[in-house]
Simulated assay, not measured.
Amino acid sequence: MTKYDYTKWIKEWTRDLGFDHCGIAKAGRLDEDARRLESWLHQGMHGSMHYMENHFDLRIDPCKLVPGAKSVITLLLNYFPGREALKDAAEEGAPRIAKYAYGDDYHEVIRRKLNLLLKQMRDGIGEIEGRGFVDSAPVLERTWAVRSGLGWIGKNGNLLHKQAGSFFFIATLIVDLELEYDVPFAGDYCGSCRKCIDACPTDAISDDKVVNGSQCISYFTIELKDLLIPDAMKGKFQDWLFGCDTCQDVCPWNRFSKPATEMAFSPIPAILHFRTAEWEELTEESFKEIFRHSPLKRARYAGIRRNLHFITPGPPPASS
């Protein structure tokens, strides 16, 4: 068997596991990204996300994550809920949830798929050392996606795929197996468009493709653990209760988005049908039950209450 055969098998296996796109790049140190990341951190654009400062060497060198690494396999999994689901969730003034959080926690879903893929590779090819990652580890997954030929980085910092837009999760599998490598994506099809820059409610996106994470609504509603959100952000959240999709919603490339086929990402009914009153009446016990498999549990009940208070006019909602 040759590396061509192995590559063909792996791409077939990823399709069987439900991944929408697969690209493969040669493992190597990311020196240019190291300089950009260092500058971004020095400017404090990570806010209180101090974990971004950790394991810097691991982020820029896959061989430090998997000794002897030869290939970085990048996988895309669509999570777009579909136009009908969005209509159900679009009542004026209802708290809004980022689309990636409509269904089950993607970390759990994708980790299972990566473990199955690695097992298939070991069963079909032989002993392979490898590790899979889903955005919670020190891996620059968007860079590897570009190097794998899957798309380009848009002005909003998201990976854009010409046929799929940006509503997908990125997973990475680093292995010590040499494979056939895809041609890196060389184009940038954002052109003069600046819809995402102009639409960002908190001006977190700059003209030079740098996103100030510490000014993003997703940062304030998910990552920030303080009891209070800064008053300077008052009136800018556009009813976003958890995360924000504004820069993706206005992106012309997302007109190509199609409904996800992964059943685990089917919207939780509460996401589509809860209005402000239901969120206000939600008890901690009910929150833990309804959202036990949801990304919303990352913000915890207290965080959701804080966010609801911040975007809802009038006095704070009554505590449970």
Score class of each variant (00 low, 15 high):
residue 144 W to I: 09
residue 111 R to E: 15
residue 164 A to C: 10
residue 126 G to E: 02
residue 237 F to A: 06
residue 209 K to L: 04
residue 232 A to Q: 14
residue 135 D to A: 01
residue 284 E to F: 08
residue 46 H to E: 10
residue 12 E to S: 09
residue 318 A to T: 14
residue 4 Y to D: 08
residue 108 E to A: 13
residue 123 D to T: 15
residue 41 L to T: 12
residue 105 D to E: 04
residue 196 C to D: 01
residue 46 H to S: 10
residue 290 I to V: 15
residue 259 P to R: 12
residue 71 S to F: 03
residue 293 H to M: 06
residue 282 L to D: 09
residue 176 D to L: 10
residue 184 P to E: 03
residue 300 R to A: 10
residue 105 D to K: 00
residue 62 P to T: 08
residue 303 G to Q: 01
residue 49 M to G: 09
residue 11 K to N: 11
residue 52 M to V: 05
residue 179 L to Q: 07
residue 46 H to R: 09
residue 182 D to L: 07
residue 205 I to F: 13
residue 271 I to C: 01
residue 167 F to C: 06
residue 93 G to D: 13
residue 29 R to F: 05
residue 190 C to M: 13
residue 211 V to A: 03
residue 42 H to N: 14
residue 52 M to G: 02
residue 240 W to T: 05
residue 83 R to E: 12
residue 114 L to V: 07
residue 200 C to K: 14
residue 122 R to Q: 14
residue 15 R to K: 14
residue 15 R to G: 10
residue 256 F to M: 11
residue 123 D to H: 05
residue 71 S to G: 05
residue 3 K to N: 04
residue 276 T to S: 05
residue 155 K to G: 05
residue 311 I to T: 11
residue 127 E to M: 06
residue 105 D to Y: 00
residue 84 E to T: 01
residue 36 R to D: 12
residue 237 F to P: 15
residue 222 I to D: 00
residue 173 L to A: 09
residue 145 A to T: 11
residue 52 M to I: 05
residue 283 T to F: 07
residue 12 E to C: 03
residue 143 T to F: 01
residue 12 E to W: 03
residue 227 L to V: 09
residue 87 K to Y: 01
residue 191 G to Q: 09
residue 280 E to L: 02
residue 216 C to G: 10
residue 215 Q to S: 10
residue 229 I to P: 15
residue 300 R to N: 11
residue 19 F to L: 12
residue 134 V to A: 01
residue 133 F to W: 02
residue 298 R to Y: 11
residue 153 I to L: 12
residue 123 D to C: 02
residue 74 T to A: 10
residue 197 I to Y: 04
residue 171 A to V: 07
residue 8 K to R: 13
residue 263 M to Y: 04
residue 65 L to M: 15
residue 293 H to V: 01
residue 242 F to N: 04
residue 15 R to T: 08
